Amino acid sequence: MVTHPFHPLAGRRLRVCRVVRRFSGLVFICAAGDGVTVTLPQGWTDRGPTPGENRLATDGLGALSALVDALMSRGVEAREGGSS
């Protein structure tokens, strides 16, 4: 199914004729009817990752920030002659 909101075929189910791996990822060559084929990046279909799937959660970013702060302050202490 085409999921890209601005694609003219959004919401339509198309038959996948071929899958091609390109430098940018997978693309699907699909039959759009009347002998017309359409090439769709995986992310524009229901076979792509769900929105937000690859994003960091705020909890994870908070923990990462605390870790970076701790490591940075530890580095400052070590340069000033403190124990590590």
Rank of each mutant, 00 (worst) to 15 (best):
A57F: 06
D59Q: 09
R22N: 04
G62M: 09
P51K: 05
V16G: 04
F28R: 03
I29T: 09
T39M: 12
F6W: 10
V68Q: 06
P49F: 04
G48Q: 00
A78M: 07
N54P: 00
M72E: 11
V38L: 14
P5Q: 07
A57Q: 05
E77A: 15
S83C: 10
V27Y: 07
L26R: 13
H7Q: 09
G60M: 07
P8V: 10
R79S: 10
L9F: 03
V38I: 15
G43F: 00
L9P: 01
G33D: 03
M72R: 13
P8Y: 08
R47Q: 11
T37S: 14
T58F: 09
A63Q: 13
L64H: 06
V16W: 04
P49S: 03
D34N: 14
S83M: 10
A78Q: 06
M1C: 02
G81M: 08
W44M: 12
S73Y: 04
V2G: 03
G25L: 10
V16L: 04
L67F: 02
V20C: 05
W44G: 09
T3D: 00
V27R: 09
A31C: 07
T3R: 04
A10Y: 11
T39K: 02
T58D: 15
G25Y: 13
H4A: 15
G48C: 00
G62Q: 12
R12T: 12
A70M: 04
F28A: 08
F23Q: 11
E53W: 09
L26E: 14
S84H: 08
G43P: 00
R18A: 13
D46V: 04
R47S: 01
G52S: 09
T3L: 06
T45Q: 08
R22F: 00
A66H: 01
L26I: 05
M1A: 13
G62F: 05
R12N: 12
L61V: 12
E53G: 01
H4G: 12
T37I: 08
N54C: 08
V68G: 00
L9W: 01
A70P: 01
D69F: 01
P41Q: 06
V16P: 05
A31T: 04
L26T: 04
G25V: 06
V27S: 07
S73K: 15
L71T: 05
S73P: 00
V36C: 11
V76G: 00
G48V: 00
R18C: 08
F6V: 08
V19D: 04
G82Y: 03
Q42R: 15
C17S: 11
C17L: 14
R13E: 11
A63R: 14
V27E: 15
A57N: 03
R15H: 14
H4E: 15
L71K: 11
V20L: 10
L61E: 15
E80I: 02
A31D: 15
R18W: 07
G52M: 05
R22G: 14
D46M: 05
L26S: 05
P41S: 07
S73H: 10
